[in-house]
């Protein structure tokens, strides 16, 4: 027990760090769900695709990188965000748009199919072997209240935070953001009021996928290993985070990510790391049955 108490700051920080990845991916789930009530199963795989795009660019530019440092990594991340954003839009156009208004079961199955296609498409192109990321963020750690906090962790948290603040501002302050919120309230109504619904939905997919792509590059640079199935579990976790925060709610998704990270971290400290995933899913099930609206969510009703 004494061991556990002295570990608390470390457990807290580890949870917070992983949670910020969850949050970044959860945003895409939450935005898409909020607007067209679609559970985009392929979203976790966009994160994986982002990591592979970052890998490809970094491998292509090769040795020049090390001279440029962090700045170059951010540029590569932005390029990957653009590409994953476009991929997200293409997936939406090909797989989801034709089914708008179709039964939910059909759309869900399409999403599962899209996820498979992305995973095994990457496996077919890049081979199923795991890859070592060509660039890794190294740095010393500092002790904060007894927790080891590394410089790369701080940098990545800052990037994630900046992206989330930018998104929050975008949704609250711009006309596109307003249009998104309008569509999530009443799609047909917005259509009648002159909102270009399809364009706004595309933009939503673009932003959500770009954020996941950014998370993918960041994960590659931090953990150093990428493979074609890396998006599956984290996608489920991110969905869990979105549900915990209140799906459809942007700030809820951020909060949910951090909460899930903490819950997992403390959970595996108490019951053992091999139960970590089981723990996360148990939390999801508990939330869905006891408080399906999440922490910040509003009352949602099944669309008929």
């Amino acid at each position: 027990m004494a061991q556990f108490i002295s570990d608390i700051p470390q457990v807290f920080w580890d949870g917070l760090f992983v949670g910020s990845f969850y949050a970044l991916i959860a945003l895409g789930y939450s935005m898409v769900y909020g607007i067209i009530k679609l559970l985009n199963f392929a979203h976790g795989d966009i994160y994986m695709v982002g990591a592979f795009i970052g890998y490809t660019i970094l491998t292509a530019i090769g040795g020049t990188f090390h001279m440029l440092g962090l700045f170059a990594l951010i540029i590569v991340m932005m390029i990957s965000m653009l590409i994953t954003g476009v991929i997200g839009v293409v997936v939406e156009k090909l797989a989801y748009q034709p089914l708008r208004g179709a039964p939910r079961l059909a759309v869900l199955i399409t999403a599962v199919g899209a996820s498979f296609a992305l995973e095994y498409g990457v496996a077919a192109i890049a081979s199923p072997n795991p890859r070592g990321f060509p660039v890794r963020l190294d740095g010393d750690f500092v002790l904060v209240l007894g927790a080891r906090v590394t410089i790369p962790q701080i940098i990545l948290m800052l990037i994630a935070g900046a992206l989330m603040i930018a998104l929050d501002t975008y949704i609250r302050r711009t006309s596109t953001g307003r249009a998104m919120r309008a569509i999530s309230l009443d799609m047909k109504g917005s259509l009648l009021m002159g909102v270009k619904v399809n364009a706004v939905i595309s933009r939503t997919f673009f932003i959500g996928s770009a954020l996941a792509g950014a998370a993918g590059v960041m994960a590659g640079a931090y953990y150093g290993k990428i493979d074609f199935l890396m998006g599956f579990i984290i996608g489920l976790k991110a969905f869990t985070a979105a549900v915990i925060g209140g799906i459809g709610n942007i700030r809820g998704a951020m909060l949910g990510g951090l909460v899930l990270g903490l819950v997992e971290s403390f959970g595996s400290e108490l019951v053992g790391g091999q139960w970590r995933d089981a723990f996360a899913f148990a939390v999801l099930i508990l939330f869905l049955t006891l408080r399906p609206t999440g922490i910040l969510g509003e009352r949602v009703t099944e669309r008929v």
Partner: peptide, 13 residues
């Protein structure tokens, strides 16, 4: 102790 294969973050281990 045991860890789960297929994850990225092993901070608990």
């Amino acid at each position: 102790t045991s860890v789960n294969a297929g994850e990225s973050d092993y901070s608990s281990a």
